[in-house]
Amino acid sequence: MNIILIMIPLSLLILIGAVTAFFWAVNHDQFEDLNSPGLLPIADATDEEKRREGETHPPVR
């Protein structure tokens, strides 16, 4: 049973950590817009693809 003397403070520490992390996220606009930021990295992939495509099929000018 003595294990609870470690586990309980640990769980409370994790609790404090979780709340702190969450407050940081809220204060840094992480929950303002949940849709569009997901699209931003897509563009980079498209650039990459385009370059790869460009190597095999040079664009017609």
């Binding site: 606009d29 817009d33 931003l40 897509i42 563009a43």
Partner: peptide, 26 residues
């Protein structure tokens, strides 16, 4: 749509002195 968000973000970020751009499509 999301494409517009991307375009606006790129357009503004390319200007000198722009530090952050936050687009809310909704």
């Amino acid at each position: 749509c999301g494409g517009c968000v991307w375009l606006i973000e790129r357009t503004l970020s390319a200007l000198p002195g722009v530090e952050s751009v936050n687009v809310n499509a909704m």
